[in-house]
Nucleic acid binder design. Sequence first.
DNA 1: ACGCATTTATTACCTGGTCCCAATTCAGTA
DNA 2: TACTGAATTGGGACCAGGTAATAAATGCGT
Lengths: 205, 205
Amino acid sequence: MVRAIERLPKRQRQQQLSRLIVDNPFIADRELSRMLKVSIQTIRLDRLELGIPEQRERLKLMAERSYDAVRSLPLDEVIGDIIDLQLDRSGISMFEIREEHVFSRTGIARGHHVFAQANSLAVAVINDEIALTASADIRFIRSVKLGEKCIAKGYVRSISGGRSKAKVEVFTYVGEEMVFQGSFIIYRSAGEASVERGIEDADRD
Amino acid sequence: MVRAIERLPKRQRQQQLSRLIVDNPFIADRELSRMLKVSIQTIRLDRLELGIPEQRERLKLMAERSYDAVRSLPLDEVIGDIIDLQLDRSGISMFEIREEHVFSRTGIARGHHVFAQANSLAVAVINDEIALTASADIRFIRSVKLGEKCIAKGYVRSISGGRSKAKVEVFTYVGEEMVFQGSFIIYRSAGEASVERGIEDADRD
DNA sequence: ACGCATTTATTACCTGGTCCCAATTCAGTA
DNA sequence: TACTGAATTGGGACCAGGTAATAAATGCGT
């Protein structure tokens, strides 16, 4: 039996539903029911089956993620997903090159995205409230292309200058191949609450 | 007149209220009324006077901010607005530091945005279909803060290696003050692609 | 004692849901 | 064709966390 185009079978509708919610977490059931042309109850049953929380919960989760980051470590302000982190020692992050990261003509990632991943990792691995990049020496060893997964590994090499500076080396790989290498000097606030601030005495907010 | 510690005068209570909400935006009026030992209506009047939105709105705003932040770097083709460009010679770009570019705790811009502006400019100034960053040596001279406008000036210093490499220096200013300095080696297609390898010498500090 | 600000209480209403139960529709099969 | 089970829809009760508006109570200074 040929289905009307309007109404999709359950499976496909649920897939659509997930997609819609993923790329607009702010959407409410009412709107979804209009878009998928089913009743609001169906939408709710679908969410239930798919384990998708209600809109408010979704926003709350997003807010929490970005908030926790502020409180502890800027984990959310990081480009790439931190998949391992040993503070003051090392860390690993993963970043997948997608459409929006590449030059559309060539499919090659723009350098600053690869840098951003490495920089974020270098900052994240430093166990401090305030950690800022002071300088960096970087090499793009080979270009990274659409779809490739960049695994960045960061190592804290030294903690010098009365704990106010740290050197972090980051190596980014696609598979076995090294694609990026960077040596970062990170300023830290040196200690728990105060003492030396990173760069020249930044103002507090 | 010595006030009871329990009940503060309006002004102080409202100050407290702001503080409480700032460092826990998730808190609801009910809880606030318990903490400040006033009725829930008073809390609501206070919020009204202070222009503090309800909890749900707060969470929504946070979610929006973090959502925008994730999109902001990836979506832009070029970071910063190119306001002057002489191909193969020099270029100027402007980039304003907004909420989504800073560490929310400190209001200091994340390094990779400043880098991204400079990198984008360095690539843009190279008059070629394919231009990729091969390496860079960068210094963050002072931290850049929320609201500041970064003016990046890029100069093509040399075109060497049979037109396959170019050195571009970028200086970024806030007002008169230099905040960032970078030396970029950019690979260009120089006739045909084959833009694969980058590094040859590994000098690190 | 009066008056004004402040505080509290009350009620109606809103959004965006949950939970539960019943009715309906649809498609395939005995 | 009638039956069955899944899918869909509808409705009601309830919830949190509010807004809005109006009224009543409480301070407190003069």
